[in-house]
Design a protein around this nucleic acid. Sequence first.
DNA 1: AAAGCTTCCAACCGCGCAACT
DNA 2: GAGTTGCGCGGTTGGAAGCTT
Length: 302
Amino acid sequence: MSSATKRGCKQDEEDTELRRGPWTLDEDTLLIHYIACHGEGRWNLAARSSGLKRTGKSCRLRWLNYLKPDVKRGNLTPEEQLVILELHSKWGNRWSKIAQQLPGRTDNEIKNYWRTRVQKQARQLKIDANSSRFKDMIRLLWMPRLLEKMTSPPSIQSLNPTSTLLNFVPQSYPSPPELLSASEQNTVTTSCYSHKSFSENCSPSISSNSMNTTQLPQISEFPTSPKDFGNIDHTQLLKEYCYVDESFDLEDLHLSSTSTAALNYPTSDFSMTQNICVDDMVDSLWNMDELWQFRKLQGRCI
DNA sequence: AAAGCTTCCAACCGCGCAACT
DNA sequence: GAGTTGCGCGGTTGGAAGCTT
């Protein structure tokens, strides 16, 4: 190979040398300008023609995940989180499919949310995030918590014990099917978890919130019959993850769901296992108050 | 104050699929 | 039908920012 040829090759390499890493403002401007003129698509051509030293793939990703005007930024709302949890339980890691149901949110963002928040909780609980057990935890504790967030402002929520999990878990907790009469099973089926009951009995403000009921059809599939719970023993479920001092009698406190005494329970008597990071849960998942009420509820129903 | 650790998210990578030649 | 190209998806990584000690 002659030196001239070598030089030519070197030049070609430099010409085609691709930039990687974070995008600069100039690169963003170039891409936005190009797309404004030529539209989306043909990403490889866009990468070459726009003067960007990026791959078409990289351009596409930058546009779709960051530059596109309708991309929403900022934290996911409880509504959005609820949709993600519900749809993930249905579709698994189909991030782009899930993203289609959340206008303005990208598959990347949803994927990141799942990995950083949801899987983190699974790690703390030492449960496989894909296990049915963890899915049950999400369904029975996390989703109601999000629904709660959707329907009451935090300030009220923190002061009013009646507005916590009790409102969203079934008023009559599902019993083993074999212990229920047909009519009782029907009652459980129709009163516990259907979206209808959530909307009518528990969350009248859903439709008036930012997300209306027409945007929520996908989250209408909470368990609607005892069999939807599989063989989960809810007491066992909680016992496995939350150590409760059995010598501590709830009734001795004369707790009622409307009593502010419920806010003053001695937390030292309610020990959580080391597996659960309470601080995290206060914000992102169920909290102590809710677990209390959850247990109390179980005491009534089982 | 600073070193070490953790979290979060933008970006990259590899693969598979579909359309085109 | 085989090869090529473009695109989209899901998994993974690197580094900035925030937090803890």
